[in-house]
């Protein structure tokens, strides 16, 4: 292994880190908002629930890579779209990549949220009702925090998988860490060293995120009232 070469490649790849992070942060926040909307839709009516289910089915049943291609190359096939107001946005590879990642993330996150919401005990809801809370207050102060705590481990996994998924943005010309690595390989013809460097960058990133999630989990657990854990006398 050529250490001098690695020392030369590493900073080159690190230059893609801000793009990787911005892709991840934007698509995760967009995905979270969409997932909340989907959950709302699911609760609203039968038709809304059917739509939400169909959405999740489509986005979880197909590979993310094909979703990216469909949005980037597929949509551009239509002249009507190219002449529409949306084109200045969809023209940008960055916007297309974020859109695809966001739509995909929403499908997975809404399922995680659904699991979390199901785990909120009816007792907690009843207690809130008895205490005279309004529906929005109850949602804000009881249901969502409990569901969030419940869903946190699964959501943590989703966050890391999204960070890793940003590597697919390289297929639509974006020069994030993987894109830079691919370009470097085709310049230097030394695949293994370059891809190993990129792998280390992601590994560190994911490890940091995993630690953060664990820390958050531990912190949120201490806020639980000890009375809840006590077995009934």
């Amino acid at each position: 292994m050529d250490l001098a070469f690695i020392a030369e490649v590493f900073p080159k790849l690190l230059a893609g880190l801000p793009l990787t992070l911005s892709l991840a942060v934007l698509s995760l926040s967009g995905g979270a908002i969409l997932a909340l909307l989907l959950s709302g839709l699911r609760a609203s009516s039968w038709l809304g629930a059917q739509f939400a289910n169909f959405y999740v089915y489509i986005f979880r049943g197909t590979p993310l890579l094909i979703q990216i291609f469909l949005i980037y190359y597929g949509l551009a096939q239509f002249p009507a779209l190219r002449h529409s107001l949306l084109w200045p946005l969809l023209r940008e590879p960055y916007v297309c990549a974020v859109l695809a990642l966001m739509l995909n993330d929403a499908a997975y996150t809404s399922e995680i949220l659904r699991g979390g919401l199901r785990a909120v005990s009816s007792g907690a809801i009843e207690a809130a009702k008895v205490a005279g809370m309004s529906r929005p207050t109850m949602l804000r102060r009881i249901v969502l925090p409990l569901a969030f705590r419940q869903a946190l481990p699964a959501y943590g996994a989703e966050v890391t998988s999204m960070v890793k998924a940003t590597s697919l943005a390289s297929v639509v010309t974006l020069m994030e860490v993987t894109g830079l690595a691919r370009a470097e390989v085709s310049q230097s013809y030394r695949a293994i060293e370059v891809f190993l460097c990129a792998a280390v960058i992601y590994l560190v990133l994911v490890t940091v995120i995993t630690r953060l999630v664990h820390w958050l989990e531990a912190r949120l657990s201490t806020h639980r009232s000890p009375a809840l854990d006590r077995s009934p006398a």
Binding site: S167, S170, T178, A191, F195, A199, L203, L205, V206
Partner: peptide, 18 residues
């Protein structure tokens, strides 16, 4: 830990070349 921390795309590239 390693396999969960590396993007699938890179694992495939690494395997393909290495």
């Amino acid at each position: 830990v390693v396999l969960r921390g590396i993007p699938d795309l890179l694992v495939i590239y690494l395997f393909y070349f290495g």
